[in-house]
Design a protein around this nucleic acid. Structure first.
Lengths: 249, 249
DNA sequence: TATAGTTGTCTATATCAATAGACAAATTTA
DNA sequence: TAAATTTGTCTATTGATATAGACAACTATA
């Protein structure tokens, strides 16, 4: 078995600058444990050799990661990895924000950013099994763990059945608790469709990301145990901070 | 609700060139149906206006997508979207390659690229519940649908229990059929961990991608119905061609 | 057959990205 | 303290990226 040459994975003239590619590689190396947390990175000249680029190019990558708060550089000493393990966000029949991250973070909560009432779009109507343009309530939320944004979601609910869920959400800070007020003490994940793309400007702002970052996108439908759709949602997760763990159900 | 300004999502000095960002945006617009298949794209000057860049920059993006086979440009007429819907790859308790894509493609199969015997790495050993460095068989495969690569996977099996599975795989072209030869007529997905990253050089070659593309990565363990681990796998999917559908299990 | 609309090609210029080399500044080690 | 190691800063040069404008080539339409 031939070992994978590191330098091979750097692509020139790709529309993605070398320093951004190398920053990605370093993030990946940290995520996989190749570069240990709280330890020093190899010196710049060694990294330059390893990736087959100039030392200054490595410095550009490092300075971007220092900006992001991933690394700390100290003149004369070295460059150090700050601890930032990727959260493992569980997805399964009973996907819940808070319970899923238990044990991985000391603090976690959902912030309600805004709510509105709007006619259901094609896909929302389909997901909820409603007629097109039926009124739905839309909740825009951000999930945070240890002070860092880990998700950004939009959720849609039938406006007739869940009138006031925006208020409940604002008060409880929990989808589960809000649904409980409407007599729903259990719900299941019916379907989840997953994709990935580059972060757009909204993602960058909402999730505190740097340009070029990747977001995981899930589109999901939650149903009651007897099969009635209650929530349609689209969530975005920063790939550098979150991985999705699809649990056996 | 304020409409999302298109031009906002283009980031300058991000380490990702504008033409690559715009190419991504166009791919996304096609995926969401904003730009219909087989129809003409807006003219270059309109796109330049829409994204807030020079016409030549749009042309760079378009020419990259023409290279990728996503678009076809015709002088004097316009630039047209070729049909290439994203495959929806189901993941659930009974994840199987061929059955999952039924109906979406006219043709699909798995190619065995190589096989080898090696000592289990840390994570493979953990996944299969074996002692570190136990011998395992590794199968490198590529999934293809309608002649296009849609997945690239490595699978590990206990070498003692599954001696000869490489041969079975080469003959049958199916993991399910190969496992059947070892008396396993059913197996379940125990766990799946999902992440996303930029394609590296190996991905580009294996999956026929252009630099800057995104891959979805799953790391999974399959078990027998009575709970014994049989397969550890890491799969990579081109995000521009595949989405993962996490089915209710 | 004009005319308008579209993609294709060319020149020129400015900025960003990457390489190269030299040396300063800070820290650790011998 | 001296030497070695490492990050920080500076100058210079080259190639890729992005903008700007003009015009050619081709297509569809009035």
């Amino acid at each position: 078995m031939i070992g994978r040459q590191e330098a091979d994975s750097i692509e020139r003239r790709s529309g993605v600058s070398l320093w951004r590619q190398i920053a990605d590689r370093i993030l990946q190396a940290i995520a996989t444990g190749d570069f240990a947390e709280n330890a020093a990175l190899p010196p710049e000249v060694a990294l330059a050799e390893r990736y087959g680029v100039n030392r200054h190019t490595v410095r550009s990558a490092i300075s971007a990661l220092v900006q992001e708060g991933v690394l700390r550089a100290e003149q004369g000493r070295g460059t150090f990895v700050l601890s930032r393990k990727r959260l493992s966000y569980p997805i399964g029949a009973r996907t819940r924000f808070s319970t899923g991250l238990q044990g991985q973070t000391s603090e976690r909560h959902i912030v309600l950013l805004s709510s509105s009432v709007e006619p259901a779009s094609q896909r929302v109507a389909e997901g909820l099994g409603l007629a097109r343009a039926t009124e739905v309530i839309r909740l825009e939320t951000r999930g945070e763990a240890d002070g860092r944004p880990v998700s950004r979601a939009a959720g849609w609910f039938d406006a007739r059945r869940f009138a006031g869920i925006d208020k409940a959400m604002a008060e409880t800070g929990s989808i589960t608790a809000s649904l409980a007020r409407f007599g729903i003490d259990d719900y299941l994940r019916q379907s989840t469709v997953l994709s990935a793309r580059h972060a757009d400007a909204a993602d960058l702002a909402d999730l505190d990301l740097q340009p070029g970052a990747i977001v995981l996108v899930t589109v999901a439908v939650n149903i009651t145990p007897d099969g009635r759709p209650i929530q349609f949602s689209e969530s975005r997760f920063p790939a550098e901070r979150v991985e999705l763990k699809l649990s056996a159900l």
